[in-house]
Nucleic acid binder design. Structure first.
Length: 831
RNA sequence: GCCGAAGUGGUGGAAUGGCAUACACGUCGGUCUCAAAAACCGAUGGGCUCACGCCCGUAAGGGUUCAACUCCCUUCUUCGGCACCA
């Protein structure tokens, strides 16, 4: 037979799969379903190694599950809206939709070259009006339910992308896309009330038992629930109160001043007419101008000014000064704090700087300064209450509870929960996105576009330049519309939706990708959802995964879905992804592959040289899926050599096989084979390998699954194989190297495709050994080995071992204190 | 600061509390060849030893156990997330 020719083989089988619609999925009553999904790509036109890794992992699983008898759905689509299309279109003097569709075409070609088992009948592109029409539909539903709303607020603004950003899109103070420092602007924008779902989004994380711990932790962090007390400080000279939030109510007697955020609404009132008014206003103006990044950086000194006003500490009626400082943020809590310099490091530094009083109210039982003069830093630990009125002597943790209750009874405080999560800003001043389907009428206000008029199509000829100002605003025919209610001339909304809106429900669309009555067919969704296995990068731990959970819960509230009887991980029936895996990045020389580093390995060049099967094999073998993977040219070479070796083995065995009937397979207990020692050995190795590979794939340990197959090949190389053994080898290889396996499957004379071959099952009888090697330890150190029959009794084994010459020097007739026998494994003699 | 993950040969990485380093890469030696590549065979944690072997060894230190890479405590380092969060 000819040499292994990956080029011919891969094209041949890719055509076969496509022509025969091998991976088309339909609802079926007689098989359990399995929905496997990867995070769909942005169509940049080229796939990179990250895609290859992500999609290969899912593909192996999908093929494996299908061979195990599951009804597998494995769809693919494109997250096609977004800024890069606009930028590329400007650069290449084309239009975003032309450019995007071209990219989709190229990308599809590359995905096909990898041999992924997609059901292309379900392909979606979010930039098609068949898709984004439903974005608009969902938005209108949210508007009806009060979940979409417009408000003027201080927002994140990227001056390079000329658009607003959601909080989740600000990474370390920079734009998630271009890393430009984010500015603050006051704008009226569209928001989604994700905060209405904060409790559910937090609590339901507990159901996600098969999600990585760190993703759960990151979401918890982001939602940021913190429990404490709101305390009301009455103003000295007016009846108004300042509400402050604290998680350390036990330190309230140590509060020696109050600090307001510069933006706090009471500031203007309390400084009015004061001597320092001008100076204070100047300070505020300066702070507000500074970006959040500046204000939150570590080394900036905490600045502040005294307002001239006083507040009353409600627990002891003390008159304490009110300050304004840059380290208090309007966005968190109430925008005001009580300062306890003795027990909070920031307050401590501020108090030292401005010579403000301190008071110790919690004393450490171990070591504690007796006076504030001795203190070099705040004491933030546990201890006993002092200087705290009726609470003196209590442990501070106990006092915390008692004080909160007492303050609530006295109406001077309220037990309160604060959250970090903010509503989701979704309007973008960009062209290439879903138009927000509302109309502004002078008389009727904000009016929804009627459902029957959807989609609001994106005009093809907008004069976009990428330089800001919504491009849609410049298209007269788009903007100038009649009010759907009163027919008066009105103006259409010109902002588009953030692209994360598109990806928050695409997994539901895949269930019925061509459905035309609503976003998805509820019956099909009921069958396929939730996604059984979702795989993607960690960068979406908060963004996409949080938004998708929010949307799914919203759909449940609309009565469109409920998976509570599906036996997935979510008891509440509204968690979209049962099992999540975040794959590690692909590195080159320890660094992320990137254009600027110039260290990109193009998958296409590897496919050309070695073939997709080699690439798939290497990328799974080189590291477990969750960890980072270091690209290794020699490693890929190794994977290629392995396939060539298997190919050659087949060649050498071909003559033997031809004696056997095509398609005939030995039954597992074949008598002829069992008599033959080598045959029995091979059967044992084979069944052991089936067990290992099956379990390893189920646990995402592809690297060890492949290692097991390599060991199997080594055994075959040494001892030969019959048709049955070799066939099982290529069946087990097929999820990893599908084209290669299809070809050998055919050469062996099998009909049809290996993708429909049932996954082999191991026979436990072959795993039983009649003799085993026992490790003999003396005081925990290996001193000997012994080949014994598994049926041997412990007493017999003991005398056998004690007679072992190798052990004599170690035992030296010393009394045996303990004799530990772990059956079939090990003996430890303690002397 | 808080939360999370991790630390094993020259390298990628294996090890339900029971033989540390499977599988692979690399390196070294050999076969084949005029030669090279490919392929094949063998060696490959460190130290001591002619050798049979022995000692040490999973970031460091301690603990539990007959037995610890694995469990517990302390420390160090790296990576990731959140953070003037009150």
């Amino acid at each position: 037979m000819a040499e292994y020719n990956h080029k011919e083989i891969e094209i041949k089988w890719q055509r076969y799969w496509e022509k025969n619609k091998i991976f088309k999925a339909d609802v079926s009553a007689d098989k359990p379903k399995f929905y496997s999904l990867e995070m769909f790509p942005y169509p940049s036109g080229k796939i990179h190694m990250g895609h290859v890794r992500n999609y290969t992992i899912v593909d192996v699983l999908a093929r494996f599950k299908s061979m195990q008898g599951f009804n597998v759905m494995h769809p693919m689509g494109f997250d096609a809206f977004g800024q890069p299309a606009e930028n590329a279109a400007i650069k290449n003097k084309t239009k975003p939709d032309v450019w995007t569709h071209k990219c989709i075409h190229w990308m599809k070609e590359e995905l096909k070259k990898m041999g992924f088992s997609y059901d292309w009948n379900r392909e979606i592109s979010t930039c098609d009006s068949d898709y984004y029409k439903w974005n608009q539909w969902i938005f209108l539903k949210m508007l009806e339910k009060g979940l979409a709303y417009r408000k003027a607020s201080n927002v994140n603004w990227c001056s390079s992308c000329y658009t607003t950003l959601a909080n989740e899109e600000v990474i370390e103070g920079g734009c998630w896309r271009c890393h430009t420092q984010v500015e603050q602007k006051d704008l009226e924008q569209w928001y989604l009330k994700i905060t209405d779902y904060k409790e559910r989004l937090l609590e339901d994380l507990e159901q996600l038992k098969e999600w990585p711990q760190r993703v759960i932790a990151m979401q918890q962090n982001w939602i940021g629930k913190s429990q404490g007390v709101d305390i009301y400080f009455r103003l000295d000279e007016s009846s108004k109160t300042i509400s402050v939030f604290t998680t350390r109510v036990d330190t309230i007697f140590g509060a020696t001043y109050v600090v307001l955020a510069p933006e706090h609404p009471l500031v203007k009132e309390i400084i009015k007419g004061r001597l320092q008014e001008k100076e204070i206003l100047k300070f505020i103006a300066k702070v507000v101008k500074e970006s959040k990044v500046m204000r939150s950086s570590d080394d900036v000194k905490k600045e502040g000014v005294f307002t001239g006003s006083y507040a009353i500490n409600p627990v002891n009626n003390e008159k304490i000064p009110i300050w304004i400082a840059d380290y208090v943020l309007m966005e968190y809590g109430t925008g005001a704090i009580m300062a306890v310099p003795a027990h909070d490091q920031r307050d401590f530094l501020f108090a030292k700087e401005h010579k403000l009083p301190m008071r110790i109210v919690i004393q450490s039982t171990v070591h504690s300064p007796q006076s504030t003069d001795e203190m070099t830093e705040a004491y933030e630990g546990e201890g006993v209450q002092v200087n705290s009125g009726q609470f003196n002597g209590l442990a501070n943790q106990q006092a915390k509870i008692k004080m909160a209750q007492w303050m609530q009874e006295q109406s001077i405080g309220k037990i309160q929960t604060h959250w970090r999560l903010r509503d989701w800003l979704i309007s973008r001043q960009r062209y290439w996105g879903t138009p927000i389907p509302v109309i502004y009428c002078k008389k009727c206000g904000i009016v929804s576009v009627p459902y029957k008029d959807l989609p609001v199509e994106l005009p093809k000829d907008a004069p976009f330049t990428g330089e800001g100002g919504s491009p849609l605003g410049k298209v007269k025919e788009f903007v100038e519309v009649k009010c759907p209610i009163c027919h008066a001339p009105s103006r259409r909304e010109t902002d588009t939706m953030a692209t994360f809106f598109d990806s928050s429900w695409y997994f539901l669309r895949f269930c019925s990708a061509n459905y035309s009555q609503s976003p998805f067919d509820t019956i099909e969704a009921k069958y396929w959802m939730p996604v059984d296995q979702y795989i993607g990068g960690i960068e979406h731990a908060i963004l996409h995964l949080l938004y998708s959970r929010f949307f799914t819960k919203f759909f449940k509230d609309l009565g469109m879905i409920d998976f509570s009887d599906k036996g997935g991980s979510a008891d509440t029936g509204d968690e979209p992804f049962t099992r999540l895996l975040t794959q590690g990045m692909v590195l080159k020389d320890g660094e992320v592959m990137s254009k600027s580093r110039g260290n990109i390995i193009d998958p296409d060049s590897i496919i050309t040289k070695y073939g997709a099967d080699t690439l798939r094999l290497f990328i799974l073998f080189a590291a477990p899926p969750e960890t980072e993977l270091e690209w290794d040219d020699r490693g890929i070479e190794g994977a290629y050599k392995f396939l060539n070796r298997v190919w050659r083995i087949h060649d050498n065995l071909c003559a033997d096989f031809s004696k056997e009937k095509a398609g005939s397979r030995h039954s597992v207990g074949d008598a002829r084979r069992e008599k033959d020692e080598v045959g029995l050995l091979l059967m044992k190795v084979m069944h052991k390998t089936i067990k290992r590979v099956t379990e390893d794939i189920e646990h995402f340990k592809f690297n060890t699954a492949i290692a097991a197959l390599m060991e199997f090949v080594n055994a075959i190389y040494r001892h030969g194989a019959d048709r049955n053994v070799f066939t099982n080898l290529i069946i087990m290889l097929s999820p990893f190297t599908p084209h290669f396996s299809e070809e050998l499957w055919e050469v062996l004379g099998n009909k049809g495709t290996i993708t429909k071959a049932p996954w082999p099952k191991y026979n436990p009888e072959f795993l039983l050994e009649s003799r085993v090697t026992i490790v003999v330890q003396v005081n925990g150190k290996v001193r000997s080995r012994m080949d014994i029959s598994v049926e041997i009794a412990e007493v017999e084994l003991r005398s056998l071992i004690l007679a072992d010459d190798k052990l004599k020097p170690w035992l030296q007739d010393k009394p045996i204190r303990n004799f530990i026998y772990i059956p079939k494994k090990l003996v430890n003699i303690v002397i």
